[in-house]
Design a protein around this nucleic acid. Structure first.
Lengths: 157, 157
DNA sequence: ACCCATTTGACAATATGTTGTCATATTTTG
DNA sequence: CAAAATATGACAACATATTGTCAAATGGGT
């Protein structure tokens, strides 16, 4: 690859960074607006989803690792959702401190409502998007994330 | 397109959302680490870059729109950078309140240092990335953002 | 059994970002 | 030109996220 071609890849990548920042922001804003009628926010929605989709109840630290967020951020969100009666902390037979995060019955109901909102919303956004291009985009982001996290050398928390 | 194919696009899109969240987080974390030696953070770096790259000095509100962020978030960052001596507010002949944001001489020097750090970092990340795939990823993110922002109906401040 | 590194949650400080409200300045419209 | 709509920054409240510190719990190695 020539120097010019190499430079152009770096420039494209810098531009992609800005796209990621802005798309992330739009995604959070749109998500906030979508689930606001349910008394939720994007961040709480994400946590609720992570708990609901987990095959088995997990402690907060595990959820945080799955989501790629700092442990304490998820901890606060979980605490808030417990206060809101959506989640509950179940005793963990394997660890006295690391309680297992579960949905309450209202939590299950809330998750169903979220899903009912989420589906048509995502379907609408996906309309006319090329599946092959989506796959390429996911591949690029994953490759990028892998390199970034390798550079961070497991520093997160 | 069959219903199954449609559903698979929606599923891919939901997965892409998670990729965007995580890549954005990694990007911010890696950026923070990169520019920390210069006493900067990712957010301040972004603002500094926006000011430095603008062909002509602009008021805060304009910069915020360019970056797709809320006006007040950028306002606070600019105020912090002014306090730090990196930026200065120049009188705007066309608008008494909307001062123009400019780099101070130390700000210019700082931006050069940032650029010297940024270039090899981006080059390293771009290594072996397929330019065509990068272009597709950018295209997908831009399409997504456009739909999201259309859904927000220009609500953002 | 004991020590030590790791994991985990509590608590707190700080950075980032959105939203709301207000006063003032500018622009548009009638 | 006057009134209304819009743009802008100051100030403040809040949500989100990282980082640091601490104590308790766990697990591993000797």
């Amino acid at each position: 690859m020539s120097e010019n071609e190499h430079a152009s890849v770096s420039l494209s990548l810098s531009a992609l960074f800005l796209d990621i920042f802005r798309t992330n922001g739009s995604l959070v804003a749109a998500g906030d607006q979508l689930v606001a009628p349910l008394g939720l926010t994007s961040a709480r929605w994400q946590v609720l989803g992570a708990v609901a989709m987990a095959p088995v109840p997990q402690p907060v630290a595990h959820i945080a690792r799955d989501m790629g967020l700092a442990r304490q951020g998820v901890q606060r969100l979980v605490n808030d959702l417990v206060d809101a009666g959506v989640l509950t902390l179940q005793d963990n037979p394997h660890h006295r401190r690391a309680k297992l995060v579960c949905l309450t019955p209202p939590g299950h109901k809330l998750f169903s409502s979220v899903h009912a909102l989420q589906r048509p919303w995502v379907d609408g956004l996906a309309q006319d998007l090329d599946p092959a291009k989506l796959a390429v985009a996911a591949e690029v982001l994953q490759a990028l994330r892998q390199r970034l996290e390798a550079g961070l050398e497991e520093d997160r928390d």
